[in-house]
Simulated scan of single mutants.
Amino acid sequence: MTPVPARHRLLVLLAATALLLTGAVLAVSRAADRAAERERGDRTSQPAVKEGKLDLRRPGRLMFRNLAWGPQRDHLASVPLTTPGAARTAAPRDCLRFHAAAGTGICLRSTGGVVPGHEAVVLDSRMKPVRRFTVPGIPTRARVSPSGRLVAWTVFVSGDSYAGGAFSTRTAIYDTRTHTLHDSLEDFTVLVDGHRHQAVDHNFWGVTFAADDTTFYATLGTQGRTSLVRGNLTRRTLTAVRENVECPSLSPDGTRIAFKKRVKPKGADAPWRLYVLDLRSGRETPLAERASVDDQALWRDGNTLVYALPGDYGADLWEVPANGKGHPRKVVASAVSPAVTGP
Rank of each mutant, 00 (worst) to 15 (best):
N203H: 07
H327N: 06
L13V: 05
P84C: 02
V122T: 09
R290C: 00
A166H: 13
W299H: 07
V190S: 07
G231D: 11
N303I: 00
L96N: 10
V245K: 11
T140W: 12
I106V: 14
G23D: 07
V276R: 02
D295R: 03
A48C: 00
R93A: 14
V25I: 12
N232M: 04
A240C: 06
R61L: 12
G137A: 08
V306Y: 06
A87W: 01
C107G: 04
L13K: 08
R170T: 10
A102P: 07
P265D: 11
A172L: 03
A91R: 09
H75Q: 12
P286L: 04
G231A: 10
R280H: 13
A16Q: 07
A68Q: 04
L274W: 08
R256H: 15
V190Y: 15
P71H: 14
R300K: 13
M127W: 10
V115I: 08
T83Q: 12
T208I: 03
T304H: 13
C107H: 07
L220C: 01
G105L: 01
P80L: 01
D175H: 05
F259N: 13
V336E: 14
E51S: 13
E319P: 02
D212P: 07
Q72H: 15
V190H: 14
L14K: 09
D94F: 11
A87V: 00
T189E: 15
G112S: 06
D312H: 10
W69G: 10
A90R: 04
F204L: 05
G342D: 07
D294G: 01
G52D: 10
T304V: 09
C107L: 01
D213W: 09
T178A: 08
G206W: 09
A268V: 01
D213C: 03
N232P: 05
L54Q: 06
T226D: 15
R61E: 15
G221E: 11
D183V: 00
Q296V: 01
P328R: 03
R283A: 15
G70S: 07
L81G: 03
R230V: 05
A322M: 09
S281M: 04
D253P: 12
D294H: 12
G117A: 14
G103D: 08
D253Y: 13
D175W: 07
T219R: 05
K266N: 10
G41H: 11
L233M: 13
W299C: 02
T214A: 08
R126Q: 14
A297I: 00
D55F: 10
